[in-house]
Amino acid sequence: MAVSTTSAPITYATRVDKVGVRYQIARALRIAVVVLYAVISLIPVFWMVTAAFKSRPDVVAIPPKVFFEPTIEGFISLLTKRVLLPPGMMEEYKQRTDLNFAERIMAERGQRITGPSQYGQRLLNSVIVASASTVLSVLLGVLAAYAFSRFNVPGKGDLLFFILSTRMLPPVVVTIPIFLMYQQLRLYDTHLGLILLYTVFNLSFAVWLLKGFIDEIPREYEEAALVDGYSRLQAFRKVVLPQAITGIAATFVFCLIFAWNEYAFALMLTSERARTAPPSIPTVLGTGGIEWSAIAAGTLGFLIPVIIVTFALRDYLLRGVTFGALRK
């Protein structure tokens, strides 16, 4: 394993063509463009995040309010079930002294809280389904990708194309037979049913993406390990896996995002016990009009876990691939 200890890489700064004024200007321009892009593309996100803390009139105000009085009524609407108070009872209800914080806020809007909504349970379902299926598809994906990358599997091209083709059928139609199958197997409205379905759905992507990454790892590394007395499995675990970690992290993030956000299957294959959050958010329709701040609050609560994972894996995602040294 002497390859990793080559002399320090030549940095860009030492190269003649990378120190001139023209290069510096081009670099500044490049940075300006990406920063500008990031800012523009984040406007809708920023607007959504602020909408979660806005009151109802503020959400639809023109010109858009950047500064506003924050309120958590969006979150309360998301987490509770409410009924509209008849005008006659409103004053009486507001006078009551046993109201808690949330009930007071909603009383101002003429609504009475009747109980918690199912959003918390659905978020928990999302966590279970998304994490289990992501781990499964990355695990199975990396095994298959390694085998396809390193061995002359019989019918390799056909098998790979088969794996890819499973991603092509519009989900709307796969759902009908799967629905019938799940009812027979008692997998309808279960965590396991959704986990397996998402795993299968992500597998094709995981295999293809990971194969691309593993193809790039020079065989010389493993061959050296095999000569040193490692078995294939040991070489796979101790040499290939650490080298493929960037690809594994990238695949992990993509599979997680898909499973976390999936909507159509969850809508059609679950009802109460296993329903995940995405089909629940659009149904947060208020009494009279869409409750934008509740939807924004739901989206925000839903977005945060994914952002945390992506930030945690950021270094792997962005470190780039370290195996340029031995590339053919």
Binding site: V34, V35, Y37, A38, S41, L42, P44, V45, I257, W260, N261, Y263, P278, P279, I281, P282, I295, G298, T299, F302, L303, V306, I307, T310, F311, R314, L317, L318
Partner: peptide
């Protein structure tokens, strides 16, 4: 940081 920020839209649910 910029790269991660640019990636935020793909993390969101298409329905929402």
């Amino acid at each position: 940081l910029i790269t991660t920020l640019i990636l935020i839209p793909i993390m969101m649910s298409p329905v929402v």
